[in-house]
Design a protein around this nucleic acid. Structure first.
Lengths: 217, 217
DNA sequence: TCGTTTTCTGACCGTATGGTCAGGGTCGAG
DNA sequence: CTCGACCCTGACCATACGGTCAGAAAACGA
């Protein structure tokens, strides 16, 4: 019997191996796509024999599904910043900040998600039709309320959301292009902050949440 | 001898077959990724035997490269709208329109491009470092001029470009997600127009190129 | 300690895929 | 019409990949 609260060696190993496999898989799927990824490569990256992967995850599809599901959870979590915001500017600004942070911290996840959707969402179509749709409708209603209160201009909330998703995720999904255009160097802390501020400024001004042409004569 | 200006039967067949293969390849690469695409599937979609593909394009890599190169040309062409614009608003607005049109007309190309960049641009890295970089630097200079003339606010031109790319290409790359959130139906003509207007409105207002909160009390 | 359950893995298998090639067909020039 | 060059393709490889499995090893409970 194991002391309560403490993991048995078995459980600890299991947990660690699963985590290592999932992390390796996320990276490989992101860099090679589902078709280009191989179980052997994921195994090597996780430091485990290939057969061991199949012990934890029966098939490549199952492993991929787990990776995508994890990402979806994180994706929705960023929504917290939109909720319970005192006003439109802080709500939307905070959401942009959260999503930019996600792009920076989980670039592989973002790429896997993008790849999955680009290929017609064969694995997570049901999530799109249920959780994502519900989530989206809820935020649209919230944004519409801000519009009715006169806090922001009368833009289509749906396209505003798309714009935020597109712009923020671009820094992860097209990170390689951005890096190349940055002289081959990854964005520095300062540059990430500047990017976030730029995105926030343009969008918040664009929807009339902050005064136009701030700081400009 | 063939009449001048008119293609011999051979040349015509060659041209048509190459075009069919490239079109099929673009679609298959977009929907399955490079790794997931098979020469057999491309052949079937083009209505040709697999061996014939290898007659026109020696390897899968070569075919893929041709597909990506074609896309890159189209990508750069949309830049015309930014050049020779009388002012910032028409220049940037026109560029957004052109890119939205591209997302609508060449969704497969956009996806292949996105996939290529997401995987680290193994095929077109040199283009990114030369043609794209040059192109980008040129537009940044043009935008900076508009800023100096006081036509738009002092945003970072680089991030403005990223924002335009991200937002417009999102309608192609994430078209499936957008379609799902649109009740499973593709965007109608009217909805595409609304999307374009939304993007233009937010960005142009966001950079101070048009008055803030137009039409809002 | 012992027996049982769970975990692990090297070696193996069937299949699908990219690519090849010999041989036949078709076209165009002279 | 004839000949050479180009075009086409069914049949065929070699390989790499996802997945399996028998059996060893480790962990566990009693």
């Amino acid at each position: 019997m194991t002391a309560p609260g403490r993991l048995s060696k078995r459980d600890a190993t299991r947990r660690e191996n699963e985590a290592r496999i999932l992390a390796a898989a996320e990276k490989v799927f992101a860099e090679a796509g589902f078709g280009g990824a191989t179980m052997q490569l994921i195994a090597d990256m996780a430091g485990l024999p290939k057969a061991n992967l199949h012990y934890y995850f029966a098939t490549k599809e199952e492993l991929y599904r787990k990776v995508v599901e994890r990402i979806f959870v994180i994706w929705l979590q960023a929504a917290d910043r939109l909720d319970n915001a005192p006003d439109a500017a802080t709500g939307i600004g905070g959401y942009i900040e959260a999503k930019m942070e996600m792009s920076r911290r989980h670039p592989f996840g973002s790429k896997v998600w993008a790849s999955e959707v680009m290929h017609g969402a064969p694995v997570i179509q049901d999530y799109l039709e249920t959780a994502l749709r519900d989530w989206t409708e809820g935020r649209i209603a919230a944004i519409r309320r801000w519009i009715d209160e006169g806090q922001i201009a009368r833009i289509d909330p749906r396209h505003l959301l798309y714009m935020i998703w597109a712009t923020t995720q671009h820094y992860a999904d097209f990170g390689h292009q951005i890096e190349t255009l940055n002289g081959g160097r990854p964005l520095s802390d300062r540059q990430w902050a500047a990017a976030t501020e730029s995105v926030k400024a343009v969008i918040l001004r664009g929807i009339g949440a902050i005064p136009a042409r701030t700081g400009i004569p």
